[in-house]
Design a binder for these strands. Structure first.
Lengths: 232, 232
DNA sequence: AACAAACAAGAGCACTGCTCTTGTTTGTTG
DNA sequence: CAACAAACAAGAGCAGTGCTCTTGTTTGTT
């Protein structure tokens, strides 16, 4: 991220910051965000708990840093999955890859997913540091929709989009160049909501008595959404 | 729920249990589940903190009771919204009413929504007490899909549903009589995921920089889903 | 060499969930 | 009515938490 530290003290600081973050991430993955303890991290690292506060001003700040890392990790996973699809014109395959990457990442990092897309526990208002990395996964999907539109595809609906809705979605339309059509914006945000909706419902146990095979069902869903998006 | 209590002690117990629950709900609504404190509740009620433990064995048990109440409250709101639609054959209107009830309830009870459909904080595994009330809102939607199918409507897709997916969704198909068609089951669960997905993403701030007018966009989404479900 | 900034450690505060003990109230039984 | 056990309330106390303040040390710069 930043420049390479010059002084020995700066490198030591960077290393300790990293060590605290790694230990916190390990603790988060094991026992979840609610039970994450600054004192336990300090114990693990063999330092006084008060020393940790020189690196992170509060427990929430530490959690926020973990949230940022989680967003980045997920974004990277989705981007990598997209990039791994050789035929860039295989739009359906790219949606499949990204959707699967999302679900797989969520299952492998349930506490991180809960922290980012479940209830954001620190203070209930997302800190401003998190807004940029949070958009990373959404942008990956947005680029796919943009590519689809440029390839001449058309979503299955809506047929007409009212002016109020166009205005409401103007930011998401303007994020790509050329701008996304209103219909694609609506369908795109809908699919985005549905994908994260499924993962949340599955991960948090709401499909327990309704769906027997989550993986199969998710694959079906993704294919359905690919149809809705007019892919291939 | 249970029989009316006979003895004075039983009524006192029921009343105190209710008072604790009400105070906990108020505290939950104000400061959220993470900051909910047994001691604070006891202070508010003018009793010793140890006395609360005679009514709820642990803080998690109290939270679980609040979760159950939240599920019931939301389920009731959705059922009431559905029931308020006079023309029962107005399937699109019923979907609109229920979806709006869901979103409105979530906005008015953000902490309750986060507790139920965000990350379930107590123990990360939903207690068995919660599974029945949790299904209430889903069942309301399921009945709508069932009514649509009986009225001869057809969802916009999928055209074919593989055997594995039929098996995966067999519980949700069998919940209503006559059983839901595979296509309606897939579309239904998809819409269910999408609705809760939107509410979660909106409530937890993920649409902050993409969508300007949540209400308008949600209405557009619901109408789109009504089309996908073949309603009217 | 002098000095200020950065650092680590420990004690301590106010708070938490929860348990154990003591003493009281209540409802039931002989 | 008396006796007794169950249910109850209150307090003290334990182990843990986030965080702050003070003290003493190390580091980098002037």
């Amino acid at each position: 991220m930043a420049d390479a530290p010059r002084t020995a003290r700066a490198t030591a600081r960077a290393e300790l910051t990293r060590a605290i973050l790694d230990n916190a991430a390990a603790q988060l993955a094991e026992i979840g965000p609610a039970a994450l303890s600054v004192r336990a991290i300090a114990r693990d690292l063999g330092m006084a708990s008060s020393a940790v506060y020189r690196y992170f001003p509060s427990r929430d700040a530490l959690l926020t840093a973990l949230i940022v890392e989680a967003y980045d990790d997920l974004g990277e996973a989705i981007e990598a999955a997209d990039a791994a699809v050789r035929r860039r014109s295989d739009l359906r395959g790219r949606l499949r890859a990204m959707a699967q990457a999302l679900r797989t990442w969520a299952i492998e990092h349930p506490h991180q997913y809960a922290l980012t897309y479940g209830s954001p526990v620190p203070g209930y208002a997302a800190p401003t540091d998190t807004v940029v990395p949070a958009t990373r996964s959404a942008f990956a999907l947005l680029r796919l929709f943009s590519d689809a539109q440029r390839a001449g595809r058309r979503p299955l609906g809506p047929e007409r989009v009212f002016a109020a809705e166009k205005a409401a979605l103007s930011p998401v339309m303007a994020y790509v160049d050329p701008p996304l059509s209103p219909a694609y914006a609506v369908r795109g945000v809908a699919v985005w909501s549905a994908l994260f909706g499924h993962v949340s419902l599955e991960l948090f146990g709401h499909m327990h008595n309704g769906v027997l095979d989550y993986e199969t069902h998710f694959a079906t869903l993704v294919d359905l959404y690919a149809n809705d998006l007019g892919l291939t």
